[in-house]
Simulated assay, not measured.
Amino acid sequence: MTSPRPLGQRELELIRLYANCQLGMSLRAFEAKWNVTRSQMAAICQCSLATVQRWFERGTNFSPPTRYHLRYLALADLFIEHFEEIPDRLKALLCPISNSQE
């Protein structure tokens, strides 16, 4: 087993940048751009269909998506929009299972 790599100034700056990143995409913006079902949105956001349905409810059943769900949508948007531009080596790191099925 190898030891963890030390954090240099570059890595510390990248961690700070990532930690402060406000990456997110609203439900409406994602739906307006991509013709996805609520089930597909649940799969993207790693949550249940019931959770997604509550995001679109009115009244007492309404529950807003978390910033993590909005980040999943933004990452999915980037992934779908720019998939062909992503180098194969990076695709293999991002999605090792799906990449091996190509």
Rank of each mutant, 00 (worst) to 15 (best):
S3L: 12
P4F: 12
P6K: 11
L7V: 08
L7E: 10
G8P: 02
Q9T: 15
Q9H: 15
R10K: 08
R10I: 07
E13L: 12
L14K: 06
L14C: 04
R16Y: 12
Y18C: 11
A19C: 04
A19W: 02
A19R: 09
N20Q: 12
L23T: 12
L23C: 14
G24Q: 02
G24W: 00
G24T: 00
G24H: 00
E31R: 15
A32C: 11
T37I: 06
T37S: 15
R38D: 05
M41V: 12
I44N: 01
S48R: 02
S48L: 03
S48Q: 03
S48V: 03
L49I: 06
A50F: 02
T51E: 06
R54I: 01
W55A: 07
F56P: 01
F56W: 10
E57P: 02
E57R: 15
R58K: 11
R58M: 07
G59I: 06
T60L: 11
F62D: 01
S63M: 12
S63K: 14
P64A: 07
P65F: 01
T66D: 07
R67I: 05
R67P: 02
R67Y: 05
Y68F: 15
H69K: 05
L70K: 04
R71I: 06
L73H: 01
A74H: 04
A74E: 10
A76F: 02
A76M: 03
D77A: 07
D77H: 08
I80P: 02
H82M: 03
H82N: 09
F83E: 13
F83G: 05
E85K: 14
E85G: 04
P87D: 15
P87G: 08
P87S: 13
D88Y: 09
R89C: 12
L90W: 05
L93Y: 11
L93K: 12
L94Y: 00
I97T: 09
S98E: 14
N99C: 07
N99F: 05
N99M: 08
S100D: 13
Q101F: 08
